[in-house]
Design a protein around this nucleic acid. Sequence first.
DNA 1: AGGGAGATTCACAAATTTGTGAATCAGGCG
DNA 2: CGCCTGATTCACAAATTTGTGAATCTCCCT
Lengths: 162, 162
Amino acid sequence: MARDEQALSTAVEQSAAVLTAAGFPKMPARVLMALLVADEGGLTAAELGESLGVSAAAISGAVRYLRSLGIIHRMPHPGSRRERWEIFDDAWYTALAGKNSVYGTFAETAAQAIDAIGDPESAGARRTGEMVAFFRFIEGKMPELLTEWEALRAASASAPVE
Amino acid sequence: MARDEQALSTAVEQSAAVLTAAGFPKMPARVLMALLVADEGGLTAAELGESLGVSAAAISGAVRYLRSLGIIHRMPHPGSRRERWEIFDDAWYTALAGKNSVYGTFAETAAQAIDAIGDPESAGARRTGEMVAFFRFIEGKMPELLTEWEALRAASASAPVE
DNA sequence: AGGGAGATTCACAAATTTGTGAATCAGGCG
DNA sequence: CGCCTGATTCACAAATTTGTGAATCTCCCT
């Protein structure tokens, strides 16, 4: 079965839209998905621009954003001047771990509200305390979850996809 | 110890800022935090507006958004005309479960890209397949995690907060 | 019923975000 | 050594999002 560019483009756009709805910036989401489904060797900025129908400048901005998140990297160029961008294999893993720490900082910031409320018996303090505990719990569990994933992944190392 | 409104307001704003950075709309985030730390009985739209320094209209919009997410509800009014808004106790739990299903739909949308690529041996198909598997794994694990949290929560039912 | 407090909605204004074109920079190749 | 392809940055334009004021609606209370 050959590459169905039409259907692929649709899938890329739809996936990017889901990411966008989840709060991810639009152009980075599209670039990310394009790189995800790309063949070995990554894509150049020009290729990305053409495939997504946007200017080189937009690509550059999106690429900078994604690099700052540490989920893509520039390929050690084969020899030509063309810079190739490639997604890290563990990008999603990393992204989730990063989001996890966001949960953590959120919990710690909110914990300050408990002190400000003063009375630990009050509804607000109780409610806030529960939320803080919840996110601390989630944050604490996440490493475990990721370890489990790694184990699973290693187990089915060269097994077929999907 | 009495309520330190100054510090409380700061904590509310900072927590809201963290949520905003994570992709949550600004005003809903602020309203959510204000309701989180509120005393028993919730707050009226007017109280929210005053406490956050914004117009009643802005509150109304934020409240509609939060209600659509199912994380706040209008209190069965005591008798007065004033509508009181209150956060659900399991709001965060619910929110995470909801976000979880976002992961799921993302995975399923992206899975379509694999078919479009055709060759399952290609780098793109392998990479995408791995991502899909990862998010399916996370989605599958989440219920377990939440169950565990419920158990923990029930265990320390009337234990002190924080 | 009528008055009035409060919530909600609407059209518009402000502000932030997003994408573009033109200019600039970088470095491989003739 | 200088041209030429391609990446990057900048200032600005477009567009989407966000918040406001005024008008409208709701419904309790007399």
